[in-house]
């Protein structure tokens, strides 16, 4: 499925830098969110064109946020390549992100499902609010886990909520209980995904060998950093902030203490996974028999998103 082009007027050839910019960005992505939508849509037996639209929508929103994020954070790399704002210009990175969001609105409005358009607009708004608030927390070294959870619910979780709700909206299923349950599950998935991503930054379950400590070096205390440092003295925190390598982190925190805190963090998130499983059981009671397969797909998500099991 070519997610880049849904409508004939997506990515016209007279905008060459835009095409190259998007190909650079998109080529190394895993497309996890699009695959999740395809799985769920399969159980709902949505038409292929609708599935294509949904998959493109989420990838466009996600990639737009990445383009803007990298510029805001001044990140030099994205998916092991030079970030778009650096390779092209900051102006093109901004415009490219705006273009993707504009195409989302064009394609969705042509599709004509008003509930889907409304929900998508709300999610984009939430995403931007989360980004805005997160930016206000740069160099705030005492931010709490609760405060970060609020940001992540707006930023990360909103896309997961969209992934699991939009196929049902596209199928014109507007059962309130169902959507409340899915919304709750989306929040938990987003939380788990973000926390796993934050652990990656400390080289935990970093199976793809991504660059580490990027958040710390950008002046941002992610959820695991916040958890690690919550009982530290001000001097220790100051030393922690200056860490450039994993070994330096171990020397500040203590290697044994680091892994002990990791166990506690994992334990905390296991409880979140248990709560998610409970909501899966609730979902099974709401869904009709012919779409129960969705529930087993959902049950496998924490393993993929948090424990990074493929």
């Amino acid at each position: 499925m070519n997610l880049k082009v849904y409508a004939p007027d997506d990515f016209p050839s007279y905008l060459p830098k835009l095409n190259a910019l998007y190909d650079d960005l998109f080529s190394h992505g895993k497309g996890f969110r699009a695959k999740l939508i395809q799985r769920i849509s399969g159980h709902l037996r949505l038409p292929d064109q609708t599935v294509h639209l949904l998959a493109q929508t989420i990838e466009f929103i996600h990639n737009a946020s990445l383009l803007h994020d990298d510029l805001i954070d001044r990140s030099p790399l994205r998916r092991e390549k030079t970030a778009a704002w650096l390779k092209y210009t900051p102006e093109y990175a901004v415009l490219a992100g705006d273009y993707l969001l504009a195409r989302v609105m064009v394609n969705l409005s042509r599709h004509g499902n008003l509930a889907l358009i409304q929900y998508t607009a709300e999610v984009i708004s939430d995403l931007l609010e989360g980004e805005w608030i997160q930016d206000s927390l740069i160099e705030d070294w005492d931010v709490s886990l609760l405060q970060l959870d609020r940001v992540h619910d707006l930023k990360t979780a909103s896309l997961f909520k969209w992934c699991i709700r939009s196929p049902f909206i596209a199928a014109h299923n507007d059962v309130a209980d169902l959507h409340r349950c899915l919304e709750e599950m989306g929040s938990l998935l987003g939380l788990l995904f973000q926390r796993s991503d934050d652990l990656l930054d400390f080289d935990i379950r970093n199976y793809e060998g991504k660059a580490i400590l990027g958040d710390l070096q950008s002046g941002y205390m992610n959820s695991f950093a916040t958890f690690l440092t919550r009982d530290m003295s001000e001097q220790q925190k100051a030393r922690f902030r200056d860490c450039k390598t994993k070994q330096e982190v171990y020397s500040v925190v203590g290697e044994e203490s680091f892994f002990s805190k990791l166990e506690q963090f994992d334990e905390h998130n296991r409880k979140v996974i248990e709560l998610f499983e409970h909501h899966c059981e609730q979902l099974a009671q709401i869904l009709p028999g012919d779409v129960q397969g969705v529930v087993s797909d959902f049950k496998s998500l924490p393993g993929i998103l948090y424990w990074r099991k493929v």
């Binding site: 979780a157 309130a176 209980d177 409340r180 349950c181 919304e183 709750e184 929040s187 709560l275 909501h279």
Partner: peptide
């Protein structure tokens, strides 16, 4: 009662641990 990040309404369901 488990705190929810999702907005509640009068028709809400509450999850208890």
């Amino acid at each position: 009662p488990i705190q929810s990040l999702h907005i509640n309404s009068r028709e809400e369901k509450i999850t208890f641990q």
